[in-house]
């Protein structure tokens, strides 16, 4: 019985505590750079699309709100023919960012994108692509992958030996 009264007293004392609520539209709060907000697609340091359309973001997505189609350009680079995120379904969980092997898909601290029409929350690749590399300035997937593309032949990636001469039997 006493403990109940003590509890009530403690709660009553909260009348004089500072309130934790931030009055959001009037006051803005600090969002750390790794805050999980609106999704973007970044570019590598050479200004090319980072996304190689590997489908890992779409399979990681718990609400299945990412759809894309892979294709390849004449230089041998893979890229998404279309890349669509239905933000009216997105729950900003960040799994896509974790799954992305090329740092292409990144979540930004922007979360203020309401629309009166759900259809306007469907973002296509043009809406998602930004012009910079986002949080990972130096990374270029094709510099570490074994795939040859225009301007990077076999054996020219990081940590690669020059291509083997199959005709040589020397050790």
């Amino acid at each position: 019985m006493l403990s109940i009264l003590r509890t009530m007293w403690t709660i009553l004392l909260h009348t004089f505590h500072r309130r934790e609520t931030v009055q959001y539209p009037e006051e803005t709060i600090y969002l750390p750079p790794r805050f999980r907000g609106r999704i973007i697609l970044s570019r590598d340091p050479d200004g090319e699309e980072r996304c190689v359309a590997c489908y890992l973001c779409s399979v990681a997505c718990p609400v299945d709100c990412i759809a894309l189609q892979a294709t390849e350009d004449e230089r041998g680079r893979r890229y998404p023919e279309f890349f669509r995120i239905n933000f009216s379904r997105c729950i900003l969980c960040g799994f896509c960012e974790e799954a992305c092997p090329t740092y292409a898909i990144q979540l930004t601290p922007d979360f203020e994108y309401c629309e009166y029409r759900r259809h306007n929350l469907v973002y296509e690749k043009e809406d998602l692509l930004i012009s910079g590399p986002g949080k990972y300035p130096g990374y270029n997937f094709y510099r570490v992958a074994g795939l040859a593309i225009d301007g990077k032949d076999k054996g020219e990636a990081e940590n690669e030996e020059p291509p083997v001469d199959v005709h040589s039997l020397l050790p």
């Binding site: 779409s58 609400v63 299945d64 759809a67 995120i85 239905n86 379904r89 259809h119 296509e124």
Partner: peptide, 14 residues
């Protein structure tokens, strides 16, 4: 693991 269920047709209808 089928993906894109809620986005594949979103360009036509949400």
């Amino acid at each position: 693991r089928f993906t894109g269920r809620t986005a594949m047709l979103a360009n036509i209808t949400v």
